[in-house]
C-alpha cells in the first residue's frame, strides 16, 4: 500500500449566533481569522430553556423593546420568533462561509450559556460567543454601543493561553488592529516583539470576575481566552455572562492554525 496523504487539518470554529445584526459583524471578524486556512464552521442558535418554562406560567408577560408594553407571550409566538431569528442566523453564516469557501453547518440547541460552553467547547478549536445580548437597559434606548478597538487576549501563561495569544496575534494582524494583553499573574507573554502595537495590562493574580470587568472596560473588538480549566469552570463562566461584554468572546482550545508551521 502506498503512503496515505496527510489528513487535512481543519480549524473547527463554532459560533453562537443570535439572529441579530451583530451576527454579521462578528462573522466578518471571524472569517478574517480563518482567511487562507481550511476551516469549518458550526453555527449555533441557542434557545434558553428557562424562557420556555417561564411561558408556562400564567402571569408571565414580555416587555417588548419595540413597544415598551407588556404582552402575553404565547408559546406559538415564541416558536415562530425563534424560527425567524434562527433562519437569519443561518443565512448570515451561510453567506460568510460561502465567501470563504468553507464548510458549514447549523444547529439549534437548547442550553443556557454556561451549559452551552461546556457542551460545545470540547468539539471546537474555537468557540465564539457573541456579544452579550441586550440587557434591560436596552428597553430605554439609551445604551449607545461603545466604540470597540483592539483585539484583547487573556494571558495567564497556560498552554491554552499561549494558543489564545497566538490566535489573537493572527487576528490583530488580519484586521489591522492592535493587541491588548490582559496579563494575569507573572507569566510573561512572549513573542510579541515586532508584532505591531501591543498594550499589556498587568492584572496580577486576579479572579476571572475582575478580568472580565477589565476586559469590559477595555472594550476590544474581540476577547480571546484559552479554554483552560479555570476559565471554563462554572463560576468563571457565570462571571463572564454577568460582565456582559460588548464584544464576542473567543474560547480557544485547539492550536492556532497557521502558527505551528
Amino acid at each position: 500500500m502506498g503512503e496515505r496523504p496527510p489528513a487535512e487539518i481543519r480549524l473547527r470554529i463554532s459560533i453562537v449566533l443570535g439572529g441579530t445584526r451583530a451576527d454579521r459583524a462578528m462573522l466578518a471578524l471571524i472569517t478574517r481569522l480563518a482567511m487562507d486556512l481550511p476551516a469549518e464552521f458550526t453555527g449555533l442558535y441557542v434557545e434558553d430553556p428557562g424562557l420556555a418554562r417561564a411561558l408556562g406560567l400564567p402571569f408571565t408577560r414580555e416587555f417588548s423593546r419595540l413597544t415598551h408594553s407588556p404582552r402575553r407571550l404565547e408559546p406559538a409566538d415564541l416558536a415562530m420568533e425563534r424560527r425567524v431569528r434562527a433562519r437569519r442566523a443561518e443565512h448570515a453564516l451561510a453567506e460568510a462561509a460561502r465567501e470563504l469557501g468553507a464548510d458549514w453547518r447549523f444547529r439549534r440547541v437548547e442550553a443556557d450559556a454556561v451549559g452551552l460552553i461546556h457542551q460545545e467547547s470540547p468539539a471546537a478549536d474555537i468557540l465564539v460567543i457573541g456579544a452579550a445580548p441586550a440587557n434591560l437597559s436596552s428597553l430605554l434606548g439609551t445604551a449607545s454601543p461603545p466604540r470597540l478597538s483592539g483585539i484583547a487576549v487573556v494571558f495567564d501563561g497556560s498552554p491554552s493561553a499561549r494558543q489564545a495569544l497566538a490566535t489573537a496575534l493572527r487576528l490583530a494582524e488580519a484586521v489591522d488592529d492592535w493587541l491588548i494583553v490582559l496579563q494575569v499573574g507573572d507569566a510573561p507573554a512572549e513573542g510579541l516583539a515586532g508584532r505591531g502595537r501591543v498594550d499589556i495590562h498587568h492584572l496580577g493574580p486576579s479572579d476571572f470576575g475582575e478580568v472580565w470587568q477589565v476586559a469590559r472596560e477595555t472594550a476590544p473588538r474581540a476577547l480571546l481566552v484559552g479554554a483552560n480549566e479555570d476559565i471554563i469552570e462554572d463560576r468563571s463562566l457565570r462571571a463572564l455572562q454577568a460582565a456582559a461584554l460588548p464584544c464576542p468572546t473567543l474560547i480557544v482550545r485547539g492550536r492556532p492554525a497557521g502558527d505551528d508551521g
Partner: peptide, 26 residues
Amino acid sequence: IGIIPTPTGFAFAPIRDGETLSPKEF
C-alpha cells in the same frame, strides 16, 4: 425573580437555584 431575554424583549419569571421555575414546580 429572574429577568429572561425573549426574542424581542424581556420577561420576569420566578427562579430557584438560578433556574426558571417550570409551571409544574410553580
